[in-house]
Design a protein around this nucleic acid. Structure first.
Lengths: 358, 358
DNA sequence: CTGTTAGCGCTTTCAG
DNA sequence: CTGAAAGCGCTAACAG
């Protein structure tokens, strides 16, 4: 390899980062800006952050060169220095579920308006994954975390390390942290009462087999409504289905076969989906042969024929509230843990009617 | 203030972060671990990263104390030091749309398996927001960015600052960066050919009014299919609807009223939703009165009656591929930009039939 | 009004 | 095999 007029210098690039044409592989630093404008880094910092004194002339020159060089502040260096970031971790159970999507969009919207970034991840309802993500957020020194908790360890872990957590939708950590939930009992009670009023006496309940407060509340609402109506509950009508259980459809089928309910109350949108499909496959007519009510209203429910009676949750608002709760705590770490409860709405549609026998 | 036997030392806390009971508000640092184990920070670093020599005994002691103290490495400090992070920015158009949800889950899954974190955000199809997010990712010095581009500036900006971008679903930046897309033309051609074969001659096309490659390709497929079948296209049948246009339904209604198409091809799931609702409101029977085909298959399409014939896209796989492309580029920055094209599948269902006149 | 200095938490030469 | 020192990019005292 020949080299003409070698200067020996070839580690020092002859062409420093050009304005906007060539691609400076190394991002522009504050020092670059300061150097280009002939000031010290601290002056540049003051000019660009707007904190501290700097003469108008110099400030303008600095701002201008920063723009010319395409300077963007390094968020890590800042975070390292200030011991706090503008990143908020958000953990939901399933990204594909419309419920969580709505939740996430409510969170993101609010967070962005306050200048925070959302780090969104899904734990697939797996508490091991949840704990792992929790570590990630700690390593990222997130300003705070909002999550639909699967287990109780994640929240505890973060709290122990000084990271504020807001539990949303489910509340597993008692009153040790902020939380915002739906009034599940009330929603389920309304849904069940509706069926009871129509004359149903054998109402199948489909719930998830977890220790989540959502399903516990929905079960309670189901029971309370029966009690209030003076109707005895047959325990056999209550089907607990594990999360993502492959035999969910079979379980629902068995319920239909063995217990002959005249109505089904599915405690979440996924179970409603399963129930709806089983009903369709068996060519049962909705609502003539059987009534169906869902907890959580998602788009398909008002597209199918007949439309599905459902308990609608203010999903996006849930996200907004959770975010505001977190921001409030960040501003005032001393305030006592808050619990906000949002009311759902029962939407009467075509999938419910009096039982044939009535 | 009296002080008995003052040693002068009161900056050193008498109670260092306790194991697991009290809550150390300040996260545990490497220095804490080193101090607790009686070594220097550098030794602790070597022990914990596994790089460099350290005697087995000391290593074990260090690992043990790190665990006891609940030490989690500070990702920023690391990134600052190593000039690179494990965070990948992902920007999609709408978090609530199932298509993007599938995409995101494919990306997240692959990213996580490689030890990266996904920073997921939505730009609401707004190029100003896109550019803003792009700055955020730069400030976070993301290892790379995967996005469904709205405009061309975002990608250019990142590229100029040395951050690798993979465009997914849409390809707006020509061959200046990696991209993975669906073969939109082919999918649209198959869908249109299907309608033509059934005997339809007046097929309404609903497309988004953008310069996105997706809709351009779908339009091309529509035209090519007509050409191949020797059928003249009436331009009036092609309806370009702006993103999130409030009058979308009215536009579709007008198409129905004025042009009397016997079939409609909706070029995305949102437009299919709009068309389906207009058809329902007018009490037109599917497929007797009119046929409907959608580009992009989402769950509701196989729940409504009749089910909707649709061009299914391998959404999750799209996300996986995009991620692999990014990872490959990170490993080898010099490789030429790649373009991957995935094939969609036409699913024949009940919403399409020969026109009544045929 | 501006520059110098120190240090956030971590890794990495480089001596010992 | 281990520790001391330097430095990533930035800001916040503190002098000048």
């Amino acid at each position: 390899m020949e080299r003409v007029g070698g200067t020996g210098i070839d580690s020092a690039p002859l062409t420093p980062p050009e304005p906007d044409d060539a691609g400076p592989v190394r991002p522009v630093t504050l020092a670059d800006v300061a150097a280009a404008a002939g000031t010290s880094a601290s002056t540049a910092s003051r000019a660009l952050t707007g904190r501290g004194y700097v003469s108008p002339a110099v400030r303008e020159r600095l701002v201008e060169t920063a723009a010319r060089l395409g300077y963007v502040r390094n968020a890590w260096a800042l975070a390292l220095k200030q011991q706090t970031s503008r990143v908020v971790g958000v953990v939901v159970s399933e990204l594909g579920n419309q419920f969580y999507a709505g939740l996430a969009s409510g969170i993101e919207e609010t967070l962005r308006s306050e200048g925070y970034q959302m780090l969104l991840v899904s734990d697939n309802s797996d508490s091991a994954q949840e704990l792992a993500l929790t570590r990630t957020f700690l390593s990222l020194r997130a300003a705070g975390v909002i999550m639909t908790p699967v287990g109780t360890e994640g929240t505890a872990f973060l709290a122990r390390h000084g990271i504020d957590v807001v539990e949303v939708d489910r509340q597993l950590s008692g009153s040790t942290c902020d939380a915002v939930v739906i009034d599940n009992e009330n929603g389920a009670r309304a849904a069940t009462a509706h069926l009871l009023e129509l004359g149903h006496r054998r109402i199948g309940l489909l719930v998830v087999e977890t220790d989540w407060t959502t399903d516990a509340g929905r079960l309670r609402g189901y029971l309370v409504a029966h009690e209030e109506a003076g109707v005895e509950v047959d325990d056999e009508l209550i089907v607990r289905i594990a999360l993502k259980a492959p035999d969910a459809a079979a379980r629902v089928g068995a319920l239909l076969d063995v217990e002959s309910p005249t109505a089904i109350f599915a405690a979440n949108n996924t179970l409603a989906d399963v129930a709806w499909n089983v009903i369709r496959e068996r060519r049962l007519a909705l609502p003539e042969d059987i009534s169906l009510v869902a907890f959580d209203d998602v788009p398909w429910m008002s597209m199918v024929t007949p439309e599905i009676t459902a308990v609608a949750q203010p999903t996006v608002e849930l996200g907004r509230r959770a975010t505001r709760l977190l921001l409030r705590r960040l501003a005032d770490p001393a305030r006592p843990p808050a619990l906000e409860v949002l009311q759902p709405t029962l939407l009467l549609r075509g999938s419910t009617a009096p039982p044939v026998s009535a």
